[in-house]
Design a protein around this nucleic acid. Structure first.
Length: 845
RNA sequence: GCCGAAGUGGCGGAAUAGGCAGACGCGCACGACUCAAAAUCGUGUUCCCUACGGGAAUGAGGGUUCGAUUCCCUCCUUCGGCACCA
């Protein structure tokens, strides 16, 4: 080591003392300054976060990236504003934890390996090294000693351990079912990872297909109701709505119908139990398990043909809303338990096996789909709700299903019960039927969700192994704790077919049964990477701890996460998984509290200059490294803060960065140019001080409220005022010195390098980043004379100048004394005069 | 169809709690400096008009109010989510 990190020399201003400002002498050299301070901060462990019970803690977390190999401008947009806020919180006196890591398992590395044979481990860790280096040039306050990498065995040991904990809680189960399969990624996907109308893979965009496979699931639906409760967390409405819609709770009844032949129970779910008497047929999904059993011999052929045809269709084709309904009769009948009516059982592809029980009662009179079906196949339609407002076609042929308010008819003893358009028990008819069903023992109140259990299994190599062992005698059992982690074998073969190398490996899957020690085989599927990211906030607490997933002392101090930031695209994926995971761990006694992240804020997306999403194929990708090279990290940071509303995002504008670059250079000049003689009036000094404290008040509020763009605006505005004050001879005064001091403290979170450099040049103690955030002097920030607009009939016609302390009467008098107001009054008395204190005067004539 | 978000100058955007619409910046125009250009500094920059003055304007229309970008209703556009969901 030739460098002595503690000897820091200010970068010399090369400009002679008497010359005019001139940018060309390059006095501001971001490259030099930034690398100098980055080294110094690292050597001093300035951003190391350790437990300190004398200070309140603040855990600021931002979503960890996948190590794709190159830092994207989007990474800057998601990391820099939270970094500035973490720095602000630190200056406010909090002990701040702001960690970073890598979500390092995943398909791209494995797909690349299939192409070029480079092992995903090698590629991933190379990418991580590269991205970490790039991230360090951003000048963030990440505590790199807490870095966690999900693909390292010391991390995924605990991912496996958590799987076992959930298994022990009865939350992990294995089931054969029709699951979504991405043919390009060669793996199954969770329901959340299938997007859009064409049901494509969230990762690669390929439409998914259905496959029948034996897979591991987490019983997330057990927590469906609790996941709908957002009490005590400050999350955006948008995310709460997305999650609520995704879970989609609906209240109704489950009712058991019996088949005429065989006396099979057929459970159905309905949100309209009050229309039970109008059920004139039943419809089963073609995949319903009872279909083969109940179909009569004479209908066998046509039913089998329909089933085959339905199976050939994709779910998209089946799901098209405007498609004409089709179906076939099974020849079988069911008995409606409320009135013993004998009704035919049909199969039709508009009934989905994946929702409810896969069978419905059809009430054509009061359901549009059933109506369309009944019309087409000439099935009976029996109205059981008489409309409140009698339509002209009363009793005549119906032209549409009636779904409005009315009273129940043709419904036995419940005739006359009022029906409104409310859902669930809020509707008197539904409430009455629910009670009646329970009394009769025919059915019960029931809740149904669209939400599905979380499919965990992935048929890929580059993920955390599912730590389960299958023995012919003892079935599936978890790998004992002392054998964790189950590590991925390194000597694997990549097949172009994408088959999992774990399956193909000659010996890896051979093991012994934890129960009998006999021969057994390992599960060769790995876990969904969302499993890894469901608990990474806990691994940051103690990334190398080996007695558990996290050090309890660290947990007690830092958890829960105070502020979590990231993209909205994870609303129903990561953000829902991680809430489920936390609740499951809470019930296992591993963590405390009901929610892992108290406050959530989402950033928007940086689009390409053409307004499209950035992508390599479109050639509209903005590379941050190029910008850092050209302008320096501080300028890029400032522009990232300034160029768009953070929660909205916007298209990138390459020209716009010039404004931020100019701002930084002008600040540099303002602070480094020689001080002209002091000639300022008391008023100039007072005005400067007022502006400083007003700006401080605003910037403080902006940081608290994630209003990042206006922080830079305010700082630009104050700088412009400082230039004017300097013109007026204020430089060098006490007020000027205070302005400089506060300015650099406010600038420090946004542009940490130049702030530190100028702080040093002013001879202030290292480091600006460990200084306290300044306090607003409210008295100084107060205006003493204010200009008030005077409105006449709602239009601004004049302005008056009054003392800020002026009473309502004084302001009123001043306004009425105005010549312009007098002109409009034409000698008459005003009808009304409203004084909004400190805001304006409104005169009504 | 249902749910949600957003519509403000040429552009990004600002506007505590209903009180001066357009802060700050980009761009553009003009001027200074320069042989010249760049850079820099300064001035101007919502639109319309018979411009010292007046009128209009925050997607459109209505409402509440002395006063609405802000609150309420209806509608339009864009984006996102969900969807034969029983």
């Amino acid at each position: 080591m030739t460098e002595k990190p503690n000897e820091i020399v200010p970068v010399k201003t090369k400009r002679p003392a008497d010359s005019a400002p001139n940018w060309q002498d390059k006095a501001y050299n971001p490259k030099e300054i930034e690398s100098k301070w980055q080294k110094k901060w690292e050597a001093d462990k300035l951003y190391r976060a350790v437990i300190d019970n004398s200070k309140p803690k603040h855990y600021a977390l931002t979503m960890l990236p996948y190590p794709s190999g190159d830092l994207h401008i989007g990474h800057w947009f998601s990391m820099i504003p939270p970094d500035t806020r973490a720095r602000f919180m630190r200056m406010k006196g909090y002990n701040v934890l702001f960690p970073m890591g890598f979500d390092a398992f995943g398909l791209p590395a494995e797909n690349a390996a299939i192409k070029d044979g480079v092992h995903p481990m090698k590629r991933t860790f190379q990418n991580i090294d590269r991205m970490r280096t790039q991230m360090k040039t951003m000048g963030t306050m990440f505590d790199w000693e807490r870095e966690a990498i999900s693909a390292s065995p010391e991390y995924y040991k605990w991912t496996e351990w958590f799987f076992i904990q959930l298994y022990k809680q009865g939350l992990a189960y294995r089931k054969m079912s029709a699951v979504d399969w991405c043919p390009k990624c060669n793996t199954t996907l969770a329901r959340e990872q299938v997007w859009g109308d064409d049901r494509h893979c969230e990762r690669c965009g390929t439409p998914v297909i259905k496959k029948n496979l034996d897979q591991w699931f987490f019983k997330a639906t057990k927590y469906a109701d609790e996941l709908l409760n957002f009490d005590g967390i400050d999350w955006p409405e948008r995310v709460k709505t997305l999650q609520t819609n995704w879970i989609d709770r609906s209240e109704g009844a489950s009712v058991v119908f019996k088949t005429e032949i065989g006396n099979h129970d057929v459970e159905i779910f309905t949100t309209r139990p009050d229309t039970l008497w109008g059920a004139t047929f039943m419809v089963f999904s073609p995949e319903h398990p009872l279909v083969s059993e109940i179909t009569t011999p004479e209908n066998k052929a046509v039913v089998e043909e329909y089933k085959a045809q339905a199976a050939r269709q994709t779910e998209i084709q089946r799901g098209a809303v405007d498609k004409e309904k089709t179906g076939v009769f099974t020849g079988a009948y069911a008995i409606n338990p409320v009135n013993q009516a004998r009704i035919p059982i049909w199969i039709a592809d508009y009934v989905m096996m994946s929702y409810g029980t896969g069978a419905i009662m059809a009430v054509p009179a009061h359901d549009e789909r059933d109506f369309a079906f009944a019309k087409k196949y000439e099935l009976p339609i029996v109205p059981v709700i008489k409309p409140e407002v009698e339509s002209e076609a009363d009793g005549a042929e119906l032209t549409a299903a009636f779904v409005g308010a009315g009273v129940m008819v043709n419904s036995g003893m419940l005739n006359g019960t009022k029906v409104n358009t409310e859902k669930g028990r809020k509707n008197p008819s539904i409430a009455a039927v629910l009670d009646w069903l329970a009394q009769q023992g025919i059915g019960k109140e029931s809740v149904n969700y669209r939400y599905r259990d979380w499919l965990i299994s992935r048929q890929r190599y580059w993920g955390a192994p599912i730590p389960m062992v299958n023995c012919e005698i003892h079935g599936w059992n978890p790998v004992p704790d002392d054998q964790l982690p189950v590590t991925l074998p390194e000597d694997v073969e990549w097949r172009p077919t994408g088959e999992s190398p774990l399956k193909l490996h000659p010996t890896w899957k051979n093991t012994t049964c934890p129960v009998c020690n006999g021969p057994a085989t390992r599960e060769t599927d790995t876990m969904d990477t969302f499993m890894c990211s469901s608990w990474y906030h806990l691994r940051y607490l103690s990334p190398h701890y080996d007695k558990g997933p996290f050090d309890p002392a660290e947990y007690d101090y830092w958890m829960p996460v105070d502020t979590y930031t990231g993209g909205i695209e994870h609303a129903t994926m990561h953000l829902l998984y991680t809430r489920f995971f936390h609740k499951a761990l809470r019930d296992a006694g591993i963590v405390e509290g009901h929610e892992p992240m108290l406050q959530l804020r989402n950033q928007g997306m940086v689009l390409g200059e053409d307004g499209d999403k950035m992508s390599k194929s479109k050639g509209n990708v903005i590379a941050p490294d190029v910008l850092v090279n050209k302008y320096g990290a501080d300028s890029v940071r400032a522009y990232i803060m300034f160029f768009a509303r953070w929660e909205m995002g916007a298209p990138w504008d390459s020209q716009g960065i010039e404004g931020s670059v100019r701002w930084i250079r002008r600040v540099w000049t303002l602070f480094t140019d020689p001080t002209p003689p002091i000639t300022a009036s008391d008023e100039t000094k007072k005005n400067l001080r007022r502006k400083v404290h007003q700006t401080l008040r605003r910037v403080t509020r902006n940081f608290e409220q994630f209003e990042f763009n206006t922080i830079v605006s305010s700082l630009m505005e104050l700088m412009n005022e400082m230039y004017k004050a300097r013109e007026a001879g204020a430089a060098g005064t006490d007020e000027w010195k205070e302005a400089q001091d506060i300015y650099l403290r406010m600038m420090a979170p946004v542009t940490p390098h130049i702030a530190e450099e100028l702080w040093l040049q002013l001879g202030k103690p290292y480091s600006v980043h460990t200084q306290q955030w300044p306090t607003v002097d409210e008295a100084a920030a107060k205006e003493d004379v204010i200009e008030l607009p005077v409105q006449i009939n709602g239009k601004v016609r004049d302005r008056i100048t009054v003392a800020a302390e002026a009473t309502e009467e004084e302001v009123k008098a001043a306004a009425l004394a105005s010549e312009i107001v007098q002109k409009y009054l034409e000698g008459k008395e005003p009808r009304k005069v409203i004084v909004a204190k400190g805001k304006l005067v409104s005169v009504v004539v």
